[in-house]
Write a protein that binds this DNA or RNA. Structure first.
Length: 801
DNA sequence: GAATGGCCCGGCTGC
DNA sequence: CGGGCCATTC
């Protein structure tokens, strides 16, 4: 990629720049300033909903169109791949697809991965290096523990790994690490061994992606470093409040030659301290860079005045803020609804009821979001959404790429791509079972550790010796043959084809087929889906005029944030508050607003909880809402097997009374709501503000249904049917019209239900009978759409038409 | 050597 | 509550 002599098609360009000028004129004065002040350091403090994205895109468009900067000399760092995609998309319509395509837009990790591929040699990596994720790191460390004889009980692996991670985020390498305590000696030994294993495997972890580029940049004698230092003329970083030390050093190094560095952030929205982010970096930016221009965007265009007021109430009590005042001209809108619910089920039922009402009023589900503090809270919400037939998608959490079969297939692919990757080899060497047992594997690993060579090289060597028996040798030899043939195929076939063949040739397909269960069926489908996703990738890359590669696909998989999965399908989005950063929705439900849940309190006393960060997190959550916000809290919540009785979150009390309306579900029977006053005093519900008392809400049934003795069946069913959504309407099936405790089921059913009968359950919807257990109390095993098969007594079922 | 069942432990946020 | 690990059994 050479020089500045980039040739523009000026004529076609002029036409495009007119709408650009028109749009810049629409910006308010500080926005326009931030977009057009292009030279020298600039920090933009962009309040929530202040039109930040707009400013950034116009700024870039301005650089390209007015200042004629070649696009490949502009680097824009975003927080998620999705944000990068959106930015590119917007720029396409501003400056045209050709220019937008050559911009460097991406996350720190994606950008560094791309640069490393280009400069892998200088960075000391093989061409097909792989990126090890969390699980891979643990696998490596497991092996290190075994080799060094370290006791996992005394030194929990996670803790040691976490420590190494923390050091790397500060830019500390194994060589530079100075042990300061007894435990640190263990950390140091593991650190060295861990790095050695990664190097041997031609692998990097997430931290390495950044560190290795940084090392190049900061090496004055490296040619690649010199190239990188001159590469970008303009550097722009979004969500700057969440950068860590390494990222900051990267940014500074990229911008060192020109000082054209623009950072955009909001210290009030800094929510990744636990990941090494340091708010002080954005706060001190203008001190670090002499002559920094400071712009503050303080007008909120996104939310109603009530939502803004609630958000300000929460963030106003934070310490250490850069002084700024968010304001809005928007109409007040509806008050923020704070709703007390009885339990997490009641809470979920309430959310579902409200969502249903919105959808009935023609609100697109895509404009509705449900937030929670931790993923564990999503399960109940999901169950109710499914039962209610409400279209939803969960962002993040353990999903597709965490499934065993997907990881297996990916491991095969990674091993084919990078023979040195021991973690991957170990994962699949006996999956499907091919008679290479634990003992054999241990021997090979020991030999590899002894010789310091990757397993791929060790296995053929072992075959020459008598370390393993003849049966083991035979099994190993056929495994080697398999991998070799796959690798040969990879040289010619496109990745998706390779993957498809792999499923068959590895024996994986037969292995799953042999197990004739519904589950293995689903796993096979998952594999097909993965193959499909590879094909999708190929089509996409080909459309961009590039060559799809296995490495490229694998890298995309490892770097794709879960938030990025968010499709624009008309579905309700459910996600953690962290994942919600940078997004906005018309209608937002913020759930689990109880002390200890949000603000979150860790069970682990050694972890210092950070109340300030929790507060900022709450601020982020609230400011995602455009039109209306519901804040729900439950009196009791089952979490990790125990029931917790929680007081409403302190953040609720921090919202100004005038902006908030308090309600309760009927199932919430507690005498009075208890709110923690700012001074810590409890007082009653806030009905003293001149508003009439909230109407009785109708989403919960008046009295809980009497539980009949001996009615316990499958636990989930029991809970579901006694929860408050039993009478909810649903689209395909209307349970409210089903008699609740009719006998017909049992009587009728005896004759009319059998294998394959379509039946209905008031909570699970429609399903198919897999098996019938006739007896005293006939029970059927039923598979409902979207659920794992459940055992249900016939009297709770009805024949579906 | 593989499959299955019990038990213990961790338990958040994520590139 | 659920995943991962280990011991037991086939």
């Amino acid at each position: 990629m050479s020089g500045d002599d980039f040739d523009f098609d000026v004529d076609s360009f002029e036409e495009e720049s007119d709408p650009l000028q028109a749009s810049i004129d629409e910006l308010n004065p500080p926005q326009a300033e931030a977009a057009s002040h292009v030279d020298g350091p600039l920090v933009v403090f962009a309040g929530a909903g202040s039109g930040k994205t707009r400013v950034i895109t116009y700024r870039i468009a301005n650089l390209l169109a007015v200042h004629r900067v070649p696009p490949y000399r502009v680097l824009a760092v975003t927080f998620t791949n999705k944000a990068a995609g959106e930015m590119r998309h917007r720029l396409e319509s501003l400056v045209g697809p050709e220019l937008a395509r050559d911009l460097w837009v991406g996350t720190f990790h994606a950008t560094c991965a791309r640069l490393l591929r280009r400069h892998h040699e200088a960075a000391g990596l093989g061409k097909s290096f792989v990126v090890y994720d969390d699980a891979d790191q643990r696998a490596v460390m497991n092996r290190v523990y075994k080799a060094l004889g370290i006791d996992d009980k005394r030194y929990p692996l996670r803790q040691i790994l976490g420590r190494i991670h923390k050091e790397k985020q500060e830019g500390v390498t194994a060589a530079e690490f100075v042990p300061g305590s007894f435990v640190d000696d263990v950390v140091a030994r593991c650190f060295h061994a861990y790095e050695a294993h990664l190097a041997q495997a031609n692998a990097v972890d997430f931290d390495d992606l950044l560190l290795r580029v940084l090392r190049l940049l900061e090496n004055p004698t490296s040619e690649a470093g010199e190239e990188l230092r001159r590469k970008f003329r303009y550097v722009l970083v979004d969500e700057f409040q969440d950068v860590n030390q390494v990222q900051y050093r990267l940014v500074r190094a990229f911008a060192a030659s020109t000082r054209n560095l623009c950072v955009v952030g909001d210290d009030d929205q800094s929510i990744y301290r636990w990941r090494g982010a340091d708010v002080r970096i954005v706060r001190n930016f203008s001190r670090d860079f002499e002559g920094t221009k400071v712009v503050k965007l303080e007008q909120n265009y996104r939310s109603t005045a009530n939502v803004v007021a609630a958000a300000l109430g929460v963030i106003g009590r934070a310490r250490d803020r850069i002084p700024k005042e968010l304001w809005t001209q928007n109409p007040p809108g509806r008050p923020v609804h704070v709703v007390q619910t009885a339990s997490e089920r009641d809470e979920a039922a309430f959310v579902a009821e409200q969502v249903r009402a919105l959808v009935r009023d023609d609100v697109s589900p895509a404009q509705i979001a449900v937030f929670y503090r931790v993923h564990a809270q999503s399960r109940v919400l999901e169950e109710v959404m499914r039962a209610e037939r409400l279209p939803y998608q969960v962002i993040g959490g353990t999903k597709f790429f965490d499934r065993a079969e997907i990881k297996d297939l990916l491991s095969y692919l990674r091993l084919v791509d990078n023979p040195q990757s021991d973690v991957d080899l170990l994962r699949i060497i006996n999956v499907p079972p091919r008679k290479i047992g634990a003992t054999t594997v241990e021997k090979i690993v020991a030999e590899a550790d002894r010789s310091g060579r990757p397993l791929t090289e060790t296995i053929p060597a072992v075959l020459e010796t008598n370390l393993v028996g003849s049966a083991g040798k035979k099994a190993l030899a056929s495994f080697v043959k398999l991998v070799d043939s796959l690798r040969a195929r990879a040289a010619t076939a496109p990745p998706s084809e390779l993957a498809r063949d792999l499923v068959a040739e590895s024996g994986y397909r037969d292995w799953l087929l042999a197990d004739d269960s519904a589950e293995s069926d689903a796993r096979l489908q998952n594999l097909e889906e993965l193959v499909g996703s590879i094909a999708e990738y190929e089509a996409e890359i080909a459309a961009a005029g590039e060559l799809p590669t296995l490495s490229g696909y694998l890298e995309r998989v490892s770097l794709t944030a879960m938030t990025d999965e968010l499709k624009d399908a008309p579905k309700i989005s459910m996600m953690t508050v962290h994942a919600a950063k940078g997004l906005e929705f018309d209608f937002v439900f913020l759930t689990g607003m109880e002390e200890d849940t949000f603000p979150f309190r860790s069970q682990d006393p050694s972890r210092d909880d950070d109340d300030e960060e929790e507060r900022r997190l709450a601020y982020v959550a609230i400011t995602r809402a455009r039109t209306q916000l519901w804040v729900t809290h439950a009196e009791r919540r089952s979490i990790f097997g125990t029931t917790r009785y929680g007081l409403p979150s302190r953040f609720i009390a921090d919202m100004p009374r005038a902006a908030v309306q308090h309600d309760k579900t009927e199932a919430s029977q507690s005498s009075e709501g208890r709110f923690i006053d700012r001074e810590g005093w409890a007082f009653g519900p806030r009905r003293d503000d001149g508003r009439p008392p909230a109407p009785k809400l109708a989403w919960s049934r008046p009295t809980p249904e009497p539980r009949q003795a001996g009615e316990r069946f499958v636990e989930a069913e029991d809970e579901a049917s006694s929860s408050s959504f039993g009478r909810r309407r649903s689209v395909e099936l209307d349970p409210s019209e089903l008699p609740e405790h009719t006998t017909p089921a049992t009587k009728l059913l005896a004759g009319s239900i059998g294998r394959g009968t379509r039946v209905a359950h008031k909570s699970f919807g429609v399903g198919v009978v897999l098996e019938l257990d006739e007896g005293e109390d006939p029970t059927a095993t039923v598979r409902f759409t979207g659920w794992t098969p459940k055992r249900i007594k016939l009297r709770f079922l009805h024949v579906a038409e």
